[in-house]
Amino acid sequence: MITSDLIHYEMLPRGLAVGALAASIIGWRQGGASRDAQIAGALFLACPSPFSAYSFDLGEAAVMAIFVPLWVIAVPTPWPALGLFMLHQLARNTIGHSGYELMPATAAGRPMFDWITSTTHHDLHHERGMNYGLYFTWWDRWMGTEHPEYHARFAAAVRKRRVGALVAAE
Rank of each mutant, 00 (worst) to 15 (best):
W71E: 05
T106W: 06
H121G: 02
L82S: 06
P48M: 05
N93E: 10
S55C: 09
L124T: 03
L82I: 14
H97P: 02
G15M: 01
C47D: 10
G83N: 13
L21G: 12
P69D: 10
H88N: 11
Q89A: 14
L90F: 14
A91P: 00
A46H: 12
A62W: 10
G32W: 05
S34P: 00
A108T: 11
A40E: 08
C47V: 07
I7G: 01
A65P: 02
P104S: 09
P104M: 08
T117Q: 04
A65T: 15
V68S: 09
A65E: 08
S24R: 02
M64V: 13
R29I: 13
N93W: 04
N93R: 07
L124Q: 04
Q89T: 12
A46S: 11
D5A: 13
L43W: 14
L82Q: 02
I95W: 01
S98Y: 04
T3L: 07
S34E: 12
M1R: 06
I73T: 13
P50W: 10
P48H: 03
Y100V: 15
R92W: 09
T3M: 05
G96P: 00
V68Q: 11
P80C: 09
N93G: 08
F113Y: 13
I95H: 00
V18Q: 05
I26R: 13
A107H: 08
A46R: 15
V18N: 03
L58R: 14
T77S: 10
S98T: 06
Y100D: 03
H8W: 02
D5K: 11
I26T: 09
D57N: 14
A53P: 00
W71F: 15
Y100Q: 12
D114Y: 13
M86Y: 13
L102N: 04
M64S: 13
Q30K: 07
G32L: 14
A62P: 03
L84Y: 05
V63C: 09
S55N: 13
L82M: 14
A40W: 07
S24A: 15
W28L: 09
M103P: 02
V63Y: 14
A37P: 01
L21D: 05
F51H: 10
I95P: 00
W71S: 05
S52Y: 02
P104H: 12
G96I: 00
S52V: 06
T117G: 06
H125E: 02
T94G: 04
L12W: 08
A40Q: 10
Q30M: 12
I26G: 01
Y54D: 07
A62G: 13
G15Y: 00
G99S: 08
P104K: 06
S49T: 15
W71T: 07
L84P: 00
M1Q: 04
G32Q: 08
S55D: 11
A108P: 03
R29F: 11
